[in-house]
Nucleic acid binder design. Structure first.
Lengths: 420, 420
DNA sequence: CATATTAAGTCCATAACGTGGATTAAATAG
DNA sequence: CTATTTAATCCACGTTATGGACTTAATATG
């Protein structure tokens, strides 16, 4: 239900609105903020004062724009205090990153581990150590972690990982094992992340493909509304519309890999036949090219190897068919190819785009453009951290409650109101 | 951008929250409303007072529940004053309905017209007359029309109908021709419907398939999150998630009819090949059955005609393949078959469900259930009216501004605050 | 039947927050 | 150097929700 608004909620909301606007329009003056938000200068000044006290905004200087009149002091997000932790468990590595409010990446770990040969408990305890180290280093740099998100390679609902075929995991309560209250993830309008359990900050768990899409949105080439295709061993996709992820009823939307390309095609591990994965998945691609190493495939393609080229062309065609269906159903603005498709883009995108153009042009004024992801394997980890930052900026109050009181300078005029 | 909240916005929001809760939980007491919304009894009383003054809520009696303590007076939506107009232009008819706040249908017209043989201007002027009559009759019944929505058979963006192949229309500014400021429709987060232009109330234009899905949500068998398939000459679909329509980037989502079922199949009018429409569209179905009247097809099916049965089975299979792709991409909770599929449900759903079960069961814990629409051709018209009601209930203030001041009884204690 | 108890709804003083006009500060224009 | 313009702050005020006291109307109890 949409919640009732009381005075504190009004204030919390307005703090979020101001902070969002500060991020959106770079360095701005208080006057410009008042203009953009519709609040009065007085109110903006008060809100900004609290945000500065909370270490989320700083004055960056005075705006010398040559106009007459007193110049304004510009405000920008401060990367100095609040940060977020992005985590990822994948088949062959664990990774973590710390990102500050400005989306600058402050720390970054990647540790190769064969997680498919470990139990969930082992892997999560390993991850726990990494979290500890990251939090310590962040603290040493003066940063306060406001929350974390963990990316896992499979569908998640309420902290529960249903299945991760590549890890061999099934029904793992990742949230619980990480030592946090089971947090949101797929729930569309989650009640509110639990205010810290074991770590002193809330931890969420979400699907890697979804987070990779968000990573592309905030750190990569995703602009506006787009579908991000993250081909790994399976093929997943995340749709971003209006800055938010589309998840479907149970958070299982975006399973592009099992869109039917050819109903009578080869059997798929999903029980169906002729799924996209059977034509454009990493395994299928390598088999068709007669190889077993993705890097080798790229080398062959560069060398103009006929069999490799044909394999990619065929995969691109299948991808185009699946993306035609996806475009008809999801109507993405653009389509970003990431994961294994990123390095193969030059050899796959042509056939895919041509197929889509043939099949879509007559019905729509614009066929979605194919773009290549600029992010490597980091997309999901970054997206995980970015998601936390996004929440903090949209609703600074509830997230700062979790991070504890503001450790501001004890002296000076006791600030009229610190962010509560 | 999420807007800043000022005092008036807070109040407006809370009025909407209270009204929404009144609808959600049937007859309720003020005390129960306070409980549910988190507002205090005092505040709820004030808000309810204004809603009663505005004619949107009435006291329905006292709650004699046998508990001790003073019994509460129950409140419910009042159908007596505020209403909405649902309109539809389709190939062979114009229709209109007036629905009150309680979603009771107060008036209903359907006028058979062959609109494909008329120009947009002619058709819209004809519709204008119908609107006038509906508004007059509504007024005679003491109702104030708070807004209207027009359903058209094609994709709409900002009042502009891109193409309606069955009408032979292309790029028609329906909103403009209806004599209103171009209103929203597909825009995801529309700024706000224009407060009345020619009619004294805002008029929106939207796609028939989308509105039919909403009709199913409010008037039919749509529960929770579902995909509504509205097969007419084309096949469209509308996805409802969390009570809201999913529209994609440009409002073109849900084109189920052009999902690829068989990439090498027969050419489709969309330029592609093997689209669902070529297997399960009304024309394809009738051709396969050797008939040209949908009603005749149903008769033959009832009589057990082999050719008709086989045609439906094949169409059901194709529908199952397309819905498999749709489920993987959209993750609907259930799937409601409407339009031409509703009468054919007994003969089509079996094959479709079986195909989906085969292809989806291994990956998900639950395959979306197939349900039949209980609404006839009225789904879109009703959904159109319901959409207006939905908006009014969520935000009573801005819609009542359009409908003019409340014509309450002039005597009595001048109400402290009428809804502004 | 009288009284206690309980819950609904209203009243009133208060607190929180944003508003709007006045004021001060700091720049450019002439 | 003065007028003008814009930024930011200050202060009195209006709006809205709060919370406790109060009134009302029912059931429970003796």
């Amino acid at each position: 239900m949409t919640q009732a608004v009381r005075h504190d909620a009004m204030r919390a909301r307005n703090l979020g609105v101001v902070l969002t606007e500060v991020r959106r329009s770079g360095p701005v003056t208080r006057a410009a903020l008042a203009d953009a938000t519709g609040l009065t200068k007085t109110t903006v000044s008060k809100l900004v004062g609290d945000l500065i006290a909370a270490g989320m905004v700083t004055e960056t200087g005075t705006l010398r724009d040559g106009e007459r009149g007193r110049p304004g002091t510009t405000l920008a997000l401060s990367g100095g205090r609040v940060a977020a932790l992005g985590l990822e468990i994948n088949v062959d590595y664990l990774s973590a990153c710390v990102v500050d409010l400005t989306l600058a990446v402050r720390l970054r770990y990647t540790q190769p581990v064969d997680n498919s040969s470990h139990t969930p408990v082992e892997t999560l305890s390993h991850l726990g150590k990494i979290i500890h180290r990251a939090v310590d280093e962040a603290r040493a740099a003066g940063l306060v972690i406001g929350g974390a998100t963990l990316a896992v390679p499979g569908p998640v609902e309420g902290g529960l990982l249903h299945s991760a075929p590549n890890l061999g995991w099934r029904d793992v309560d990742v949230g619980g094992l990480l030592g946090t209250a089971p947090s949101t993830g797929a729930a569309p309008e989650a009640p509110r992340p639990p205010a810290a359990a074991g770590w002193g900050f809330p931890v969420e768990v979400d699907n890697e493909a979804n987070l990779a899409a968000l990573g592309e949105l905030w750190f990569g080439s995703g602009r506006g509304d787009f579908l991000h295709v993250s081909g790994e061993i399976g093929i997943g996709a995340g749709l971003v519309i209006g800055g938010a992820l589309f998840r479907g009823a149970r958070g299982l939307a975006g399973e592009l890999g099992h869109v039917v390309v050819f109903p009578g095609g080869p059997a798929c591990r999903c029980g169906g036949r002729g799924c996209l994965e059977q034509y454009a998945g990493q395994e299928a691609l390598l088999r068709a090219a007669g190889l077993d190493d993705p890097d080798e495939l790229v080398r062959r393609l560069r060398d103009g190897d006929g069999r490799a080229l044909r394999a990619c062309e065929r995969a691109g065609h299948a991808l185009g068919v699946a993306l035609t269906s996806a475009t008809n159903l999801l109507d993405p603005g653009t389509i970003v190819l990431g994961g294994v498709f990123a390095p193969l883009f030059p050899w796959i995108s042509g056939a895919a785009a041509a197929t889509m153009a043939d099949r879509l042009a007559a019905m729509r004024r614009a066929v979605p453009e194919l773009a290549v992801s600029r992010l490597g394997g980091d997309a999901a980890t970054l997206g995980a951290a970015g998601k936390v930052i996004q929440r903090i900026i949209a609703d600074p109050v509830s997230h700062l409650a979790a991070a504890g009181a503001v450790p501001g300078p004890p002296a000076g005029r006791s600030p009229a109101g610190t962010v509560r």
